[in-house]
């Protein structure tokens, strides 16, 4: 085992800032949606729009960081070990089996994470951003000088935005739980806070653990 610097300062800042913003956007967003009452509708709208602007800035920096550092490659989905990873969460984890994918600085995401995070980045977040921007800036056709955006109503935009919000909350629930599935219960959390994590030496050959005999995978 070796103590490695896995998550760099910006990455950690980005991650926690994103966490905070998503939490705050969900809180204010569901107030605008009418599900909860906390700040009051007017304030909820102001805060939600403010947080959304911050999120946009954060996203712009994050895209820049991922491109310049080449870290975006971490998210390229792969089918390799995917099945093993699913089987690990369904069976292996209960019998103390080793993680099927070795975490390294150059490959810190397991195949399931790669797929889920890639989907978040190229599907869910863009849908939320675009629908959110339209939500904020939509105008009824051709009034007050916004002639290029002909949107006759909020319904589609709002429903898409709401559906995305529900999905993100479901994601956060599972994400928070999966923190506990690292080397130890808290190793993932510690790593995302300090940046350092105890990793198995990189030269250790990656060995997907085979499901035990007599067990069928789903």
């Amino acid at each position: 085992m070796k103590r490695e610097y896995v998550y760099r300062a910006f990455e950690r800042f980005w991650h926690w800032m994103q966490a905070l913003l998503i939490f705050f956007l969900a809180l204010t967003g569901f107030e605008i949606h009418g599900s909860i009452h906390f700040f009051g509708f007017e304030q909820a709208v102001t805060l939600h729009n403010g947080a959304a602007t911050m999120f946009l800035i954060l996203i712009a920096f994050a895209i820049f960081w991922h491109l310049t550092t080449g870290e975006w490659r971490q998210y390229i989905p792969t089918a390799k070990n995917l099945r093993a990873q699913v089987e690990y969460y369904i069976f292996g984890i209960f019998r103390n089996a080793p993680h099927p994918t070795k975490k390294t600085v150059l490959s810190k995401l397991n195949p399931l994470q790669k797929i889920v995070y890639a989907a978040l980045k190229i599907l869910v977040i863009p849908v939320m951003v675009v629908s959110g921007l339209l939500y904020m800036f939509y105008r009824y056709p051709q009034k007050h000088g916004i002639e290029s955006l002909n949107i006759s109503g909020l319904e589609t935009i709002a429903l898409l935005h709401t559906a995305g919000a529900f999905f993100l909350i479901a994601f956060v629930v599972v994400h928070l739980y999966l923190i506990t599935t690292g080397q130890s219960l808290t190793s993932n959390l510690k790593a995302m806070i300090t940046g350092y994590e105890e990793l198995e030496s990189e030269h250790t050959p990656e060995q997907p653990s085979e499901p035990l005999a007599g067990e069928q995978t789903v």
Binding site: I32, H33, G34, F41, L159, T162, A165, F166, Y177
Partner: peptide, 28 residues
């Protein structure tokens, strides 16, 4: 005859959305 935030919602999306969260919670 229009969608207004805070007043309106779509029953299907509410059910699926809340369902997804509940299933996640039960699952974990």
């Amino acid at each position: 005859d229009f969608y207004m935030p805070g007043r309106d919602s779509n029953a299907a999306i509410e059910w699926f959305g809340i369902g997804a969260i509940v299933i996640s919670l039960v699952g974990i």
